[in-house]
């Protein structure tokens, strides 16, 4: 698998660390809404299809990337810096198969 880091260009997957589901939304810190926290920490969409996810280019520039990748074909549809807080990198990113 090759992931195109916006900084470094196309790099082998070995340089990256998977940081999981990018759809999760962290509750605002003062929130004590346990259901919301539980959903954030434990619940995953886990789609068979396009998946919005976070990868860190840990063996490179160390930036976190928001990647849309198909979990059946492993095809990578888009990559962007995660910084900036955009929840999804493009409109396919909700992760429906």
């Amino acid at each position: 698998m090759l992931i195109t880091c916006p900084y470094c260009g196309p790099r082998d997957v070995i340089e990256f660390t998977y940081q999981g589901d990018g759809n999760r939304e962290r509750p605002q810190p003062p929130s004590q809404d346990l259901d919301a926290w539980n959903a954030y920490v434990y619940d995953r969409l886990n789609p068979a299809g396009d998946h919005n996810e976070i990868w860190q280019h840990s063996g490179g520039c160390r930036a976190h990337l928001r990647v849309v990748r198909n979990t059946i074909t492993h095809e990578i549809l888009s990559t962007a810096f995660a910084r900036g807080g955009h929840k999804s990198a493009d409109n396919r990113a909700e992760g429906r198969s």
Partner: peptide, 14 residues
């Protein structure tokens, strides 16, 4: 290190 970077990059970019 990864924990700190994750929070700075993904959760609290501000």
């Amino acid at each position: 290190m990864q924990h700190l970077e994750y929070f700075l990059d993904v959760i609290w970019p501000e």
